[in-house]
Computed example of a mutant assay.
Amino acid sequence: MAIESGFAHKNGAGGRLEGRRPYYTPVGNEDTVFKAAYRQGLSIVLKGPTGCGKTRFVEAVAHDLDRPLITVACHDDLTTADLVGRYLLKGDETVWVDGPLTRAVREGAICYLDEVVEARQDTTVVLHPLADHRRQLPIERLGVTLDAAPGFGLVVSYNPGYQSVLKDLKDSTRQRMVAIEFGFPAPEVEVGIVAHEAGVDERTAAELVRFGQAIRRLETGGLREVASTRVLIAAARLIAEGLPVAVAAQVAVAGPLTDDIAVARGLNELIEVYLGETAAND
C-alpha cells in the first residue's frame, strides 16, 4: 500500500499568492491583530457580513506574511475526510491523498475555512487540537498525529447574520480562537475601494456607495442581506462596461438581494432616488 499526498489548490499548484499584494484597505486594527495572533500561533475567526472583505483580507495578509494560502469553501456536505484526506484507488494501488487541512499542516501554510458554520459540527471538531496549544492534527486513518509545521495558521470565517441554533460555532471551538470583527468600510474608504476595483470615477463610486448605505438602513424582513461592498463593485464594473447606472444597480444589487416583489419595488425606488434614474421593469 502506497501513501501519496495530493491537493488541488485554489490558487494554483504552488499555493503562494505571487505578484502584487491583493488590494485591501484596512478598516480598523484587523491587520495588526491578525499578524500578532499569527506570530503567537493563535487561530483566528473572522466575523462579518457577506461581501465585506474577509476573504480579500486573508489573501492580503498571507501575501504580507509570504505564506501559501489554502482556501476551503465550507458547505453542509463537507466531511472530515474532505478536510483531512482519504485513501483512493490509483491504478492497482490504494494511495493516501491529503486533504487541504493536512496539506496546510505539513507545509506550514495558512488554511482558511470560509463560512465554517456551513460545515457539520462533527467535522469542525477536528480543528480543536490544531486551534489550541497542541497545534496537532490526528489522522486516525493513518494512525499518526502531525505537528503543525512552522508557519501554519488556521483561519475561519462566518457571517453572524446567518447564525442559528443549528448553524453556529461550538463554544469549545470559539474559545480556541481570536475573534476579529468586520463591518462595512466608512463611506470615504468604500468609495475608494469601489473606484479602484471597478475602474470607475469617484463620483460614480460615491453614488453607488450612497445607494448601498441607504439599503443598509432599511428595516425590512424581505432582505436576507444588505448591499455588500462586493455587489457595489459588481454594479460599478457593469457601468464601466457601458450599462446604464439603473440597469447595473438593478441586476447587480437589487436583483440578488431579494425575490420579494414588494421589496424589489422599494429597491427600485431607491435606485431612482439615489442614482437619479428609473430602474427597468419597475
Rank of each mutant, 00 (worst) to 15 (best):
M1R: 10
M1K: 09
A8I: 12
H9K: 15
H9M: 10
K10F: 07
K10T: 06
A13G: 04
G14I: 02
G14C: 06
G14N: 13
G15N: 06
L17M: 06
E18Q: 11
G19E: 02
R20S: 14
T25I: 13
V27R: 14
V27Q: 11
G28R: 14
N29C: 03
N29E: 13
D31H: 04
V33S: 04
Y38H: 14
R39C: 03
G41D: 04
I44G: 01
K47S: 07
G48N: 04
C52V: 15
T55H: 01
F57V: 00
E59P: 01
A60S: 15
A60W: 01
V61L: 06
A62Y: 02
H63D: 00
H63N: 07
P68V: 00
L69P: 00
I70L: 15
A73C: 03
C74R: 06
C74V: 08
H75L: 08
H75F: 09
D76H: 13
T80C: 07
R86W: 01
K90R: 15
G91C: 07
T94H: 06
V95K: 05
D98R: 04
D98L: 08
P100M: 11
V105T: 02
E107Q: 13
E107F: 02
A109D: 05
I110M: 01
I110E: 00
C111T: 10
Y112Q: 11
L113Q: 06
E115F: 11
V116A: 15
V116D: 00
A119P: 09
P129V: 06
P129R: 13
R134F: 08
E140S: 14
R141K: 14
L142E: 14
G143A: 07
V144Y: 06
F152E: 02
F152H: 05
N159T: 12
L166Y: 14
D168H: 14
D168V: 12
K170S: 15
K170R: 14
S172Q: 12
S172D: 14
E181C: 03
G183D: 15
F184E: 12
A186D: 15
P187W: 00
G192Q: 10
G192D: 13
V194W: 06
A198W: 02
G199H: 08
V200R: 10
D201H: 06
R203C: 01
T204P: 04
A205G: 09
V209N: 06
R210K: 13
F211K: 04
G212I: 01
A214E: 07
I215M: 04
I215V: 12
R216I: 09
L218Q: 11
E219N: 10
T220E: 03
T220F: 03
T220R: 03
L223R: 01
R224A: 13
R224Y: 04
E225S: 05
A227S: 13
S228E: 10
R230T: 08
A234E: 10
A235I: 09
A235E: 11
R237D: 04
A240I: 04
E241G: 12
V245D: 03
V245L: 15
Q250M: 09
Q250K: 15
V253T: 09
V253M: 07
P256Y: 05
L257M: 07
D259N: 14
A262M: 11
A264G: 12
A264N: 11
G266Y: 02
G266S: 05
L267C: 12
N268W: 02
E269P: 03
L270G: 00
L270V: 00
I271G: 06
V273W: 00
L275I: 05
L275V: 03
G276P: 01
E277M: 07
N281L: 13
